[in-house]
Design a protein around this nucleic acid. Structure first.
Length: 647
DNA sequence: CTAGGGTTAG
């Protein structure tokens, strides 16, 4: 290693930018040695650490080159590309920039770039304004605009952006691809999608992949995926960003299947996904509960030798948890060398959803002992865990601790957890008191939760009061009618049941159609109640008969209370028998290997009778059945359920 | 020296 003085000597005797050669480790270079010797700039690593930049800076100082515009410009460029924050307490790049007496355009542009990436991007716009009016600063050129527009996009400086657009036109940079791309991005960030499109259309010659990607992103941000799709098909060459823009646009817009399909198409073309795509696709698989799809993505990650980051591991943990394999989630989580708040939150929430309240709380205790700081969502998981495990005292304690020890303002979700926890455990008065204490407008969801508690505890009168109130509040929400009806049904008040049912029909409440899905033979099979569309429908109905017969032999009597009362008794039994999850289970028994696990995903909550039947099937047919319903997991095994019939 | 997506939890 040469001494500093010899380096300085070398620099002085050769040229200033030669020092990069000495500073940057060879293995971090972007290009081969042969090309790097021709251009010293290329010795910069892709994103230098702050320490590396400071080493370079130290050498610049000792070499007496702090007034050199070009070398300082390179230093500022390195700072802009550095991943570490450079402007927390004092502005390091600005201090460097101020050392130059007559900054050239190169150094000034890089200063604008640093400010645009800083925590105060508006300063970037301010410096641009200075450039325009001060004779001490150079005039903007084509490189200036992408940087300053990036700042405008970040802080949504619409008016300033408009003015800058005018400058661009006046100074004759309106045809520059980079400038145009930056403008499209700026208008998109300000939700001026039509303006983005206008710039895109203005010049069909001056376009590159980024131009196309920018307009795709503009439409995706605006939720206009149909228009994005049209352009996506039209565009000449697509890169990985084009695909990721489309995939993420679909998934974020709720078109989960579309996102998966787009991913499949990309893979068929032999393209390598990036991390954002993989995380998004795992999230889509998780939301849909498609375990096989999720597993396929996991295998893809492995076969690509993709580097496993914390976020990718977190996405996998979440996917396995939401697809019913909480054990796989635990495995991945335990193997992770580095964990963060997010991965722990996902794990805590996953454990809670699977009814593993005690494990969730144990993890939370580990989490705090490791010095992680819990956030609002952490407590949603913790309170849910308490609720599922029936740990009322712990729940009260954690709720208090959240506010007092961690200074987290409770949100509606936290109150929801508390009302659920108290109501479920029978502390109805306390739950009521809590709802009434909340000064902000009480959420119908909270009352709905309490209504659920009334159902569990058979509180007809209170349920009636709350139910009526809720129906009045939102007559189009079908869930409230259903809950109220089932409260009446539980009390065998059949007239009231049919009255509420009729009311629901008359007022045209948006009834959400219930469905259940199961993955088998590489396909997703979705059933609705009484479904006869499936190609193996006859066999499925035969299987239902077999189930009914074998359950009857072991003493099962169907509970007809949850359904319409004004139909004949036998009919009722049939309607229940053909609930979508029953069809899915019957199909599962047909197609999965003997003794294998059956996994079902439902959009609504499991009804009491289906819950009972699932338990019985798990015993009589000796099958593990895992059902993900609208709010939690049920693991049926040997005649029991993990939710302990408490849901 | 220029640009684009920035994902994941309730």
């Amino acid at each position: 290693m040469p001494s500093i003085s010899s380096i300085v000597f070398t620099i002085k005797s050769k040229n200033a930018s030669f020092l990069y050669r000495l500073l940057i480790p060879i293995q971090k270079c972007r290009f081969s040695i042969a090309t790097t010797f021709q251009s010293p700039l290329r010795f910069l690593p892709v994103s230098p650490s702050l320490q590396q930049v400071k080493q370079a800076h130290a050498l610049i100082i000792t070499a007496g080159l702090t007034n050199d515009s070009t070398i300082t410009g390179h230093l500022l460029a390195a700072l802009a590309l550095s991943p570490s924050p450079t402007s927390s307490s004092f502005n390091y790049p600005l201090a460097v920039f101020r050392r130059i007496q007559n900054a050239n355009i190169f150094a000034t542009n890089n200063m604008i770039r640093c400010l645009a990436k800083s925590e105060t991007p508006y300063d970037s716009v301010a410096l641009y304004a200075d450039m325009c009016r001060s004779s001490l600063l150079p005039k903007p050129n084509n490189y200036t605009f992408p940087f300053v527009l990036q700042a405008c996009s970040k802080v949504l400086a619409i008016v300033e952006g408009f003015q800058i657009h005018a400058h661009i036109v006046r100074l004759g940079f309106a045809q520059d691809v980079y400038v145009r791309n930056a403008l499209i991005h700026f208008y998109s960030a300000c939700h001026r999608t039509e303006s983005s499109r206008h710039i895109f259309d203005e010049n069909s010659e001056s376009r590159d992949v980024v131009t196309w990607n920018s307009i795709l992103a503009a439409y995706a941000r605006d939720g206009q995926m149909d228009l994005a799709e049209t352009l996506f098909v039209e565009m000449p060459d697509k890169d990985v960003i084009s695909w990721s823009t489309m995939i993420m646009g679909h998934v974020q817009g709720g078109l989960l299947e579309k996102g998966l399909e787009c991913f499949r198409e990309m893979r068929e073309r032999g393209l390598r996904p990036n991390e954002a795509i993989l995380v998004t696709i795992l999230s889509a698989s998780a939301q849909l509960g498609l375990l096989e799809q999720g597993r396929l993505v996991h295998k893809t990650i492995e076969s690509l030798n993709f580097p496993m980051s914390v976020s990718l591991n977190t996405a996998l943990i979440d996917m396995y948890a939401k697809c019913g394999c909480i054990d796989r989630s635990k495995e991945i989580f335990n193997k992770m060398a580095h964990k963060d708040v997010w991965s722990c939150n996902v794990m805590i929430c996953g454990l809670a959803a699977h009814g593993l309240g005690k494990e969730a709380l144990a993890l939370f205790r580990w989490f705090t002992s490791e010095g992680f700081k819990p956030v609002n969502i952490t407590f949603v998981g913790v309170l849910n865990a308490c609720s599922r495990a029936g740990l009322v005292d712990d729940g009260r304690r954690y709720f208090k601790s959240m506010i007092e020890d961690y200074g987290i303002e409770p949100e509606m979700e936290h109150y929801g957890c508390m009302v659920d926890l108290l109501g479920r455990a029978g502390f109805i008065a306390e739950a009521l008191e809590l709802i009434e204490k909340i000064t902000i407008k009480p959420d119908p969801v909270l009352w709905g939760t309490l209504l659920g508690a009334c159902k569990i505890h058979g509180l007809v009168e209170l349920g009636e009061t709350i139910g009526k109130k809720l129906i009045e509040l939102d007559p189009t929400h079908d869930g409230h009618y259903v809950l109220l009806a089932s409260i009446y049904a539980k009390a065998k008040k059949w007239e009231d049941v049919s009255r509420v049912r009729r009311m629901m029909v008359d007022r045209g409440a948006n009834k959400v159609a219930g469905w259940s899905l199961i993955e088998a033979e590489g396909k997703v099979h979705r059933f609705i109640a009484g479904d006869k569309e499936h190609e193996r429908s006859p066999e499925i109905y035969q299987m239902l008969e077999v189930i009914t017969k074998r359950l009857a032999e072991s003493g099962y009597l169907p509970d007809i209370s949850p359904i319409l009362h004004d139909i004949q008794e036998e009919e009722k039994e049939n309607v229940i028998k053909e609930h979508s999850e029953r069809l899915a289970i019957a199909f599962g028994l047909l197609v999965t290997e003997v003794g294998g696990c059956i996994r079902i995903v439902k959009n609504l909550r499991v009804c009491g009778d289906c819950h009972e039947v699932s338990k019985m099937i798990s015993k009589v047919f000796q099958r593990e059945i895992i059902v993900r319903d609208g709010s939690r997991f049920h693991h049926f095994k040997g005649g029991n359920c993990s939710c302990l019939d408490f849901w």
